[in-house]
Every structure is written in structure tokens, then in C-alpha cells.
Design a protein around this nucleic acid. Structure first.
Length: 551
RNA sequence: UGCCGAAUGGUGUAACGGUAGCACAAGCGACUCUGACUCGCUUAGUCUAGGUUCGAAUCCUAGUUCGGCAACCA
């Protein structure tokens, strides 16, 4: 696998300039997940940028849980998020932080804002405030309470904190500009009353800071120099800056980049949740999901995901990347690293009529055609074998056909050359078994007389074969962009064939593999032993097929 | 009709005033004990119009198109 070079991008240009000018002398970034769901490949892009940038500049990247909304968040996600980041190969070391650990500090900053006349308690209902905020093309109106004295606001805010108001009775607002063309500057809410049990602070607080107030302060406290986020926060940046400037505290620079979108998938947390809730997939770690746990179960590698994110880079252009690029990078990685083995997915029996009935022999086959260091494995061979049904045909369609037809000699990979002599069919014309003769002088697969054969096919010895459940996964949706059609629900575009379960004949080493091990099933694709896999009941997930010409 | 942002082959990106390059995709071919891998070749791009300049994808102006923004979510 090529090491995932961090390409330069516009963010690094900014950092280079900041370092050159002396504005910054060290680089601190952060990845700030809200513990309210599982990480997906879109998050991986952010993780690679945040951690990758810190790595590139010998800086630090903090992992900070942005746990400011206890209603939405849950402890269950905290460990899963950490596991996923570690799996991707990043390490935050000692730098694990929680927004909730700053609640005291945030509260005093809010008090400070009030003292500066820059915040006030507003008793307008959420609904009523909409009226005052106005619409983009027209200025808003001054809400009642905006002219409260500092003392009044201080007292009211304290009451808010002390639980003297009902949930939603009032909020603390920044006093900025009710006529601003940027709606986020029309006196945004800073604190809301919400009696919810917090996983970290318990019932200490009944008021919680809003994202806009909390996030910039978290970054500032931690000395983050470059705070990267996605494009939709662009219009929040003036507020981010306003809060820190008004508070006169350390000011990180917020830099926005575009989200990762992929063809044939959806990325929004809400939509993924719909798939899970409606049981259209088998949970968050369904191998068709773009979640990191799903992709891991599918057999995709962390290196491929990192490499992919690195190749995509970062820009401010809204884009949708082709899944083909990701798949190509996965294949590159898996081709290098996966041991080979043989499995027959659609078996049909071959009988080598001149091979002794009770004989069994074994072959030591290399696990990788180009990497000797991956070693060899023992593969048993006997008179009856399984081969793929489509490796026999009555009449070859073209001269590229590799398989058997009557009279055709092919190579049984790593074993012998064999010639098809006859085929046995049932009343309906279905092939029951194929009769062949093998050439004992071709042991190992090459003929002493130097004759060439057109094809090499894979096989499994019938009496040694183990039945395995194969879960063949494919792209979840039939449309490149399942969200493009506004008339239809994206779930209508789910491909019913995105999971097909079958039973295969696999060679013994594949049964013995431990869960999560990856193989290339020769001539078929890349497979990964599922979490459910046991030697007695093997289960393999298809990660990807081998590259194949389009049908 | 307000504000913010973005426009380079089919897709994702690079070029930082000096030969528009790379990868994926697509097509053709070679090689092959995997129709894989590998290798060779081909197709294809600077949103438009002006301007500055010896020279513009890059700077300026105007326009066009696309995206985001009106949670007590993040």
C-alpha cells in the first residue's frame, strides 16, 4: 500500500502562511464529534484532515466530544467513536477533552458578556422570536428585554441557571445586530434551559450552551490554531469571531471545507438512522452502510479509507466523488495484502475419471503470486472437485473463454491439466456433473512437453470442501445520487440485490480463518470473514469483486 | 428580491502571472498458472464576456450557474 501522502491543499496554504508570518508557531487542530451517532466515511474525511494536518506540522490534534446537548447524546456512542478513530489509525494521546468540562468557564464567559452589555435574557418564545428575527431581505425588530439593564440580565441569567424558570421560558441572547444581513448575527441564542440528565455533569446544569457559543470557546480554551469544519458553518464564522473578540480571548481560525459525498450512498446521519430504524439494513454496522463500523465489517481497510481521503484532498467545492475511486483504492490495498485462496461460489461437480478413487494428495500453493513472504498453504486434491458452474459451457462464446467444454483442456490451478470428456445432464438439460481426464504428468500445473492451455480455473476438492455462507454485498442504491429525485423517497432506490446470500464450497484454510481476516478468493473477489464466522459455520462477506470488464 | 461561498476533462483534484498535469472512469492493445495484478496507447477540461499584462485557469470588472443560511441541533 502506498503510504498516504498528505497532499497540500488550501488549508495547508493558510497554515504555511501563518507559520511564515509568525502568527502561529505551532499547530493545534481538533476533531469534535457530538456523541449522538456512529462515525461514517464523511467523518473520516474530517478526521484525516484534522489528525493529518497536525501530523504534517508536528502539531497536536485533540479529540473533543462536543457534548452540549444532553437530549441528543448518549454514552453508548462515546466508546464506538473512539474505537473507530483508533481503527483508522489516529491517536490523540493525552488530548481527550469534553465540552462539558468547560461548562463552568462557559458560564462565566456568558456572565462576562452580560457585564459588557453584549448579552441579555430574552423571554420571547422560540416561535415569537421568529417574528422578531425577520427574514433575510428585511431587518428584524428589537426584542423586548434587549434594553434590560446589566443588573437585570445578571439576575435573570442566574435565575435561569438556578432553575427558576421552566424549560424554554427564556434564553440568553447575544446582543449583536437585529438588522444584520447574516441571520446568525441577529441576536443568536447562547444558552437555553433544558432539564436533561447529562452523561458527564449529571443534573448539575439545567442550562446548556448553544453550539455557536460553546464551540468557539472550546477551541479557544484548548489553544486550537486552526478549527476545520464543513461548509455549512461558513455563515457562522462571523459569530465565532464575534464571541471570541468580544470576550477578548485567544482566537483560533475557523476554516471551512466541503463535505464528502459518494455516489450510490447517502451520508446524512438522519437518513442512515432511517435505514436502521426501518430495518432496511441490518444495523449500523451493516456492511453496506458508509459507517466506519459497517465498512470495517465489509472488509474495507483503514489504510484504504485514509488513502482515499488523502487523494480527495480538501476544497470548498461541493462535490460528489465516484465510489469507483474508493473501490479502486481498496482493491490496490487488498491486492497487495490479501492471501489468496480458492472458493467455489456456484459449484458444479467435476469427476476426474482416471484419478484413483481413494487417492488424496496435497499441494503447497503460494498465498500470494508476488509476495513470497505471505507463505504457502496446503490444499487437498482428490478425484471429485467442485468448479464454478460458469467454467463449463457447451459452446464457447468467444476465444477468450477460459473454461471447459467437451474436448477442452484447462489448468486446475496449481494442480493438473485436465480435459473435459463428457457432460452429464438431467432431463431439464441442467449439467449434473462434468467428466474429465487429468494428465498425471502435469502435476503442479505445467506440461513437460511445454504445451499451453488457454485457461486456468479454480477448484475445491469435494470431499475436503467446507460449506460457507457467503454474503455478497454490493452498493446499497441503484442510483448515483439517491437524493436527486425530489419526488421520490431515497429508500425507493435501495437495490434489493445489494445483499445476496448463498452457500459456497471453500477450501479448508478458509474455514479455519479468524473473524475479520481478509482473503482474495481467486478469480472472484475480496472477502472478509464475518464477525459471525466460526470454523464450523464459516461466513464470508464479499468486500468487492475483482475488477472485471463491464457486462 | 438579502447575505455567504464555489465554478479546471465524465468524476475528484494539481498548477500560487510563464508548456493545463495526476488519479479514477471509459476505449484499444500487450502480458499472464487469477478475465486479477502489471505494462503501453487513446478519448476528454480552465462557466461566459470584457479588461490589465510580453504572457491569465491564476489579477480586475460585469454576468451566468450551482450550493449554503431564517433549531432554544451540531
Amino acid at each position: 500500500m502506498s503510504n498516504e501522502e498528505i497532499k497540500t491543499n488550501f488549508i495547508h496554504d493558510i497554515i504555511d502562511a501563518d507559520l511564515a508570518s509568525g502568527k502561529r508557531t505551532q499547530i493545534v487542530t481538533r476533531f469534535p464529534p457530538e456523541p449522538n451517532g456512529y462515525l461514517h466515511i464523511g467523518h473520516a474525511k474530517a478526521i484525516c484532515l484534522d489528525f493529518g494536518t497536525a501530523e504534517k506540522y508536528n502539531g497536536k490534534c485533540h479529540l473533543r466530544f462536543d457534548d452540549t446537548n444532553p437530549e441528543a447524546e448518549d454514552e453508548e456512542y462515546v466508546q464506538a467513536i473512539q474505537d473507530d478513530i483508533k481503527w483508522l489509525g489516529f491517536d490523540w494521546g493525552e488530548n481527550l477533552f469534553w465540552a462539558s468540562n468547560y461548562f463552568d468557564q462557559m458560564y462565566s464567559y456568558a456572565v462576562e458578556l452580560i457585564k459588557k452589555g453584549k448579552a441579555y435574557v430574552c423571554e420571547l418564545s422560540q416561535e415569537a422570536f421568529k417574528d422578531y428575527r425577520g427574514i433575510p431581505t428585511e431587518p428584524g425588530k428589537e426584542p423586548p428585554g434587549r434594553q434590560n439593564t446589566i443588573e437585570e440580565n445578571l439576575a435573570l441569567f442566574e435565575k435561569m441557571k438556578n432553575g427558576e424558570f421552566e424549560d424554554g421560558a427564556c434564553v440568553l441572547r447575544a446582543r449583536i445586530d437585529m438588522a444584520s444581513p447574516n441571520l446568525h448575527l441577529r441576536d443568536p441564542a447562547l444558552y437555553r434551559i433544558k432539564r436533561a440528565h447529562h452523561h458527564n455533569t449529571g443534573d448539575t446544569w439545567c442550562i446548556y450552551p448553544m453550539y455557536d457559543f460553546a464551540h468557539c470557546i472550546e477551541d479557544s480554551i484548548e489553544g486550537v490554531t486552526h478549527s476545520m469544519c464543513t461548509l455549512e458553518f461558513e455563515v457562522h464564522r462571523p459569530l465565532y469571531d464575534w464571541i471570541l473578540q468580544t470576550l477578548e480571548i485567544f482566537q483560533p481560525q475557523q476554516i471551512e471545507f466541503s463535505r464528502l459525498n459518494l455516489t450510490y450512498t447517502v451520508m446524512s446521519k438522519r437518513k442512515l438512522l432511517e435505514l436502521v430504524n426501518e430495518k432496511l439494513v441490518d444495523g449500523w454496522d451493516d456492511p453496506r452502510m458508509p459507517t466506519l463500523c459497517g465498512m470495517r465489517r465489509r472488509g474495507f481497510t483503514a489504510a484504504a479509507i485514509r488513502n482515499f481521503c488523502g487523494i480527495l484532498g480538501a476544497t470548498k467545492v461541493e462535490s460528489i466523488s465516484e465510489i469507483e475511486l474508493f473501490e479502486s483504492i481498496v482493491r490496490d490495498d487488498l491486492n497487495e495484502t490479501s492471501p489468496r485462496a480458492m472458493a467455489v461460489l456456484d459449484p458444479i461437480k467435476v469427476v476426474l475419471e482416471n484419478y484413483p478413487e481413494d487417492q488424496t494428495e496435497t499441494f503447497e500453493l503460494p498465498n500470494h503470486p508476488k509476495k513470497e513472504e505471505l507463505g504457502t498453504r496446503t490444499v487437498p486434491f482428490s478425484r471429485e472437485l467442485f468448479i464454478e458452474r460458469n467454467d463449463y459451457i457447451d459452446v464457447p462464446p468467444n476465444n477468450k473463454y477460459k473454461g471447459f467444454f467437451v474436448g477442452r483442456e484447462v489448468r486446475l490451478r496449481g494442480a493438473y491439466l485436465a480435459t473435459c470428456t463428457a457432460v452429464e445432464k438431467d432431463a431439464d438439460g441442467n449439467v449434473v456433473f462434468i467428466a474429465c481426464t487429468y494428465d498425471p504428468k502435469t502435476k503442479g500445473g505445467s506440461a513437460p512437453d511445454g504445451r499451453k492451455v488457454k485457461g486456468t480455473i479454480h477448484w475445491v476438492s469435494a470431499k475436503h470442501a467446507v460449506d460457507a455462507e457467503i454474503r455478497s454485498y454490493d452498493r446499497l442504491f441503484t442510483e448515483e445520487n439517491p437524493l436527486a429525485d425530489k419526488e421520490k423517497d431515497f429508500k425507493e432506490f435501495i437495490d434489493p440485490q445489494s445483499l445476496e446470500i448463498s452457500t459456497a464450497k471453500i477450501e479448508p484454510v478458509l474455514a479455519q480463518a479468524v473473524p475479520s481476516s481478509r482473503f482474495q478468493f481467486e478469480r472472484i473477489g475480496y472477502f472478509c470473514a464475518d464477525l459471525d464466522h466460526t470454523p464450523e459455520a464459516p461466513v464470508y462477506n464479499r468486500t468487492l469483486t475483482l475488477r472485471a470488464p463491464r457486462k
